[in-house]
């Protein structure tokens, strides 16, 4: 019992620490990469290759005056960034880094918990994150923030449906809602039979995390930013942090659900033994995650931003039919090849 409790506490700490520790180097990496792609230098002053730039920015944000606009609903204004941040960290408790590790006569799951409704849990948390956006815009008592929050929450509500529809195909093929089980079921990564679903999922993940080309809240010049226009200092950094934590989460999900986690390491188990297979699988999983993050940054560097109506049309007139087609493909495959 105590052993179990210690394991749970340890895993929970890891699940919370990873996004917190990975985000600052991630922001630096993104800015360097954007610089490379756009033929400029990027941050290169603070520390070697500018590696401590994010730290310097964080200190600057923390040192700024904490502004709350006059006429704002103080309680909700303060609560809103937390409403956005908490779900994005809660979701980490079901994200698998690998499957199981058998060591010293114990079985250690490489995930904080194997929830039997893991997929639904993630969908539920993404659907709850919209409250942070709604409240941030409304509590600011500013018409630009209010309109921005209406825009962003409509975007999130629409695209979270596409996220769910893309995942339904995977659930049909895997026959389970638990994420480690979905990883185990992939003899071939689901991205191959369900390529359409993978496309829908990646697009929906980009939109859910408010990343380019769906980053309307970042549009200062034409839309006066969005729901967080009245936020400054460390409260603003919370929005920033949750965006990057969500992005990392989306990368882990794509790697686990569509790219097969540590696939194809499991086929090497008879040759190199269990321990090395597991370590290799975790390494492969992480490289898939970083590959996907790279694609995220690449898209941001190259694609122009959608106009609002184009974004909504793309969601309902392109992604929804594709998602339904993907579901049909998954059903046919389940009855034939995967039967």
């Amino acid at each position: 019992m105590t052993e179990l409790v210690i394991a749970v506490i340890f895993k929970s700490i890891i699940a919370f620490a990873v996004p917190l520790l990975v985000v600052p180097p991630l922001i630096w990496g993104e800015r360097r990469l954007l610089g490379r792609i756009q033929s400029r230098l990027g941050p290169n002053r603070v520390g070697p290759f500018g590696a401590f730039q994010t730290l310097a920015d964080a200190v600057k944000l923390l040192g700024k005056e904490d502004m709350i606009p006059a006429g704002a609903d103080r309680a909700l204004f303060i609560l809103a960034p937390f409403l956005l941040l908490v779900p994005s960290f809660m979701a980490w408790s079901v994200v698998p880094v690998g499957t199981e590790l058998h060591i010293f006569g114990r079985v250690i799951g490489l995930y904080a918990t194997d929830l039997n409704v893991g997929v639904l849990y993630i969908v539920a948390l993404t659907s709850v994150a919209v409250y942070g956006i709604v409240m941030a815009g409304w509590a600011s008592n500013s018409k630009y923030a209010l309109l921005g929050s209406l825009r962003s929450s409509a975007q999130m509500i629409s695209y979270e449906i596409m996220l769910g529809i893309a995942l339904v195909g995977v659930v049909v093929l895997a026959g389970s809602l638990s994420l480690p089980e979905i990883v185990r079921q992939q003899q071939v990564p689901f991205a191959i039979p369900l390529i359409i679903g993978a496309f829908v999922f990646v697009c929906a993940a980009l939109a859910e995390t408010n990343r380019a080309p769906f980053d309307l809240p970042e549009a200062e010049t034409e839309l006066v930013s969005g729901y967080h226009v009245e936020y400054s200092g460390w409260r603003f950094s919370f929005f920033f942090l949750s965006e990057y934590a969500n992005m990392l989460l989306a990368s882990f999900l794509v790697s686990a659900v569509f790219l097969g986690g540590g696939w194809p390491a499991q086929f090497l188990e008879p040759y190199i033994g269990h321990l090395f297979t597991t370590l290799l699988a975790v390494g492969i999983m992480m490289s898939k995650v970083f590959l996907f993050l790279f694609i995220y940054f690449w898209i941001r560097a190259t694609l122009p931003r959608f106009r609002y109506d184009q974004m909504m049309n793309f969601c309902w007139k392109v992604l929804l039919p594709l998602g339904l087609l993907n579901l049909a493909v998954a059903t046919v495959l389940k009855l034939t090849i995967y039967a």
Partner: peptide, 25 residues
């Protein structure tokens, strides 16, 4: 009843009350 819990949050918290808020804002 984990499924019910997740569906409860997705439907009520994630969809219906958000629409209430939309109107009230």
């Amino acid at each position: 009843a984990e499924f019910l819990a997740a569906a409860h949050i997705i439907i009520y918290a994630g969809a219906i009350i958000v629409l209430f808020l939309f109107t009230m804002m």
